[in-house]
Nucleic acid binder design. Sequence first.
DNA 1: CTTGACTCTATAGTTACTATATGTTTTATA
DNA 2: TATAAAACATATAGTAACTATAGAGTCAAG
Lengths: 129, 129
Amino acid sequence: MKIGELSKTSGCSIQTIRYYEKEGLLADPERSEGNFRLYSNKAMKELEFIKHCRSLDIPLANIKRLIELKNKPEESCLSVNILIEQQLTLVNKRMKELKALKKELQQMASTCGSGSTIETCGIIKSLDS
Amino acid sequence: MKIGELSKTSGCSIQTIRYYEKEGLLADPERSEGNFRLYSNKAMKELEFIKHCRSLDIPLANIKRLIELKNKPEESCLSVNILIEQQLTLVNKRMKELKALKKELQQMASTCGSGSTIETCGIIKSLDS
DNA sequence: CTTGACTCTATAGTTACTATATGTTTTATA
DNA sequence: TATAAAACATATAGTAACTATAGAGTCAAG
């Protein structure tokens, strides 16, 4: 299939597919006589793998490592596990931060006293302190 | 004070301060005879305001709007409120996403069965599906 | 044989900074 | 006073993961 079809069935934009190729996450595909990229079902699966990893917010560099590991089936899966644990740690950290953000933003919003002027607005006041 | 001192007392890097100036978030400061930036306490407070907003993950463009609003004390604070509510919506959305991420990552980690090979690793399997 | 859809490469823009190169000014020391 | 070190100046490039655009080539249908 050509890149347009791959794009539609995968849900990745054409530019993104080409970008993944440039970054070495997708193998260079075969080319048609007229230099169009031609993809196999295998390429499609590789793209799905990347998509799934991205949906977990795993950075491209780590996805690259996962793909390399995937191609060494006999090796220990310890590094895979470490990578996922690291991702989990990151997510937990960010969640904590967001919880704090949420709390402060909610407090601020509640002090606005809408309908009044900026001069007396509780939000601006709390941002100022 | 010069930029180094402002940087130290505010906790913003020198480059960041200059960047905020370039982006129009900080007013162009006075200059010494030798062209060094000279800051007042007012500038310091403006920087603190920006810092506080950034700690709430408010994007620079919106901070710029907040600063403009701040300088119109007699206007309605409605737009301030909308801006903060939008930020809150964003944070809530991201939190939901992170919760889902966390769940899936945890499930994946638990299927690893560490000590085994990549071939049999539950993590890679779940990423493949 | 031409039109339109699709594809190609290369390049610039996005966000909020950080890092680097190169040059000038000020401050401290010899 | 000479000089060396520290602080400052501007301009430019790099970061992550794309998205958007420009300008040109390819292909199928009418």
